[in-house]
Design a protein around this nucleic acid. Structure first.
Lengths: 346, 346
DNA sequence: GTTAGCACTCTTGCTGATTGAGTGCTAACG
DNA sequence: CGTTAGCACTCAATCAGCAAGAGTGCTAAC
């Protein structure tokens, strides 16, 4: 059915979507024929439009307005019509420039990436910091705050620092803890968290017989330390940028979006999802799918460093974004951030 | 002049402000006499209102609307009329409850504090994490990421973890760095950052003659590590809460506020300022003073732990807030957070 | 299959009338 | 002399009515 779209239909659909992306207003048959020099009369275009509406690619907000692309329309556009431009050399260079003398700290780097995405797109940038599961450990440190409270500081190969407080009822003196720390840093350095966990399980099985040896308590402690996932934070930069879009003259929609930004769970979910797939992913908010970001889309791509740190970044903008420039922007930035992480890790 | 306000004027001003806080709409003479049982006719009230307007406590949005308090009006209200309620025992208990089994990590604790402030007030909570200048050092750690990049991890007495990447051109081998770390942790533990800085300066003067000793390089490194201020981050929680207030039906004002939240500098400034003073501070946004938060106020108080960690927290809401409950809420929370930090530090 | 023409629909912007809340002023009252 | 009642006036907000404009669907002709 969809595949039956002939050349003319596709041309017109593309024209409509591109007009809509530019103007944000429903596009009518007359205006369309004038702007793109289409060798067809408005009446013919109307017929085509009616077909496209029936097939679900377009809707009209009301009887006598023009047509607006539906989610399906966008999808089709993205999948088969859109020609992705290359990011111009100048633009790449200027983006690269931004990363030059800053973002020394991992966290700062990622925040900055979000800010740059936001600024260059004039939409909202989002960045999810790498989950540490697959990350290589460089050092693990235990700091005794009080008898029962121990602070664990974890440093990854790439300089990501995460910390966590655990309450333990295993008595460990200051010097025992010091010894434990040394042992663990030696043993774990160079392993990924996953591997460390496996190691702990294996060792603890072996040590089961031994009664409360220091090693045993040490292992138990590290098990607690790595119990829950570390990382997975999300930064949202330039949230207010998106509010300048005309579609957010609607107060309620605006509030809903802000609430979504505040809560972050949907974003985390989407960013996670896109981490599982290669390349640039696009999520279109619609009443059916991601109703919290109705009217908006997320263009996301994940970045990976050679050492296994994997995060995701992207841009949230109105669904009628100029994807042809936004997609390469996100793609390029993801690659850039990944490679900067690599440099940091050298 | 101001002090000439007689009993009746003050009564009426208070009534107007309280009405306005409740309704958010300009209050007229008739409505006022009815709601509060004032033994005066509307006409008399009108005369008083005219006086108050002339003195700058009230304005009217337009000729035939009621009166609205000015910044000066609020100030007077806050300074001399407002009776601050005690936070009810039940409420205190329920807030305390929230902090029970969570917020193990300093950062989480403060985020949570912001969230609770936001939730109980239904406005926006802000928290500035303690600046580390006056904080006592528990451990300082150097991790070598690459030849020239060294990660500094700083742990305070209270378990605050801060880290920073420095680029150094001092060659230090892995083992030298280890040695340095041990030395510094021993030496610095228990000192405040300020004291550490002084110590470094003193030592370096003494060591000047020595040519490139390990000690010298170590000190230089720590000097770089502590060069810039650590900390001072601001969390904003429940930003969207405030949007439900009727005054934010104005799109532009809304956008401006969101932009202010996004940028944070104004907030940092205000929170800093209020850190210098004891007790609850109130900043009223007006075209003159803090125009970025026009229509809003910040009620802030700083919290201190015995170990010197000092941060600030507060609530941002519309200027017409029920201060009588918000002020004790902020006050109580600041005290509570301070004492929780103390517990963590034991 | 394509197009011109036409009737129809629906939004948008404008106008003017109406309503209601509130003010300021003046004159009367105790 | 302070207080009050009365009255004219001002504005904002709301609503109906109207015209313009953009766009559609349908039909009949090309």
């Amino acid at each position: 059915m969809n595949e039956e779209l002939n050349e003319r239909c596709r041309l017109i659909l593309e024209a409509i979507i591109e007009d809509y992306i530019l103007s944000g207003e429903p596009v009518g048959s007359r205006a369309l024929t004038r702007r793109h020099n289409i060798a067809l009369s408005p009446a013919t275009v109307r017929n085509v439009m009616a077909d496209l509406e029936e097939m679900g690619f377009l809707t009209s907000p009301h009887t006598s307005a023009g047509r607006v692309p539906t989610e399906k329309g966008y999808r089709f556009y993205l999948d088969t019509l859109l020609q992705i431009k290359q990011l111009s050399l100048g633009k790449r260079q200027s983006i690269r420039e931004h990363y030059k003398h800053r973002g020394l700290r991992m966290e700062e780097l990622l925040r900055e990436a979000g800010r740059i995405l936001s600024a260059t797109s004039s939409y909202t940038g989002v960045v999810m910091v790498p989950h540490l599961t697959t990350t290589i450990c460089r050092r693990i440190d235990f700091v005794r705050l009080s008898a029962r409270r121990i602070l664990v500081v974890f440093v990854s190969q790439s300089g990501i620092v995460e910390h966590k407080l655990i309450e333990s009822d295993l008595p460990l003196t200051e010097s025992e803890l010091q010894e434990a720390t040394n042992y663990l840093s030696q043993t774990f350095s160079g392993l990924s968290i996953q591997e460390i966990k496996q190691y702990i399980v294996a060792q603890m099985a072996e040590e089961k017989a031994m009664y409360d040896s220091l090693l045993r308590r040490t292992l138990q402690l590290s098990s607690m330390a790595l119990e829950e996932e570390l990382g997975g934070q999300v930064f949202i930069e330039g949230a207010c940028n998106i509010l300048d879009q005309p579609e957010f003259n609607d107060l309620n929609r605006m509030k809903r979006l802000m609430r979504t930004f505040d809560q972050k769970n949907l974003l985390v979910e989407l960013l996670h999802k896109s981490q599982l797939t290669e390349g640039v992913q696009i999520y279109i908010g619609s009443p059916d799918h991601y109703s919290d970001i109705e009217g908006c889309s997320l263009v996301a791509a994940s970045f990976t460093s050679r050492w296994g740190a994997t995060g995701t970044l992207g841009i949230i903008g109105p669904t009628r974004m100029p994807y042809s420039t936004i997609i390469p922007l996100v793609d390029f930035t993801a690659g850039l951030v990944g490679s900067i992480l690599d440099i940091d890790e050298e």
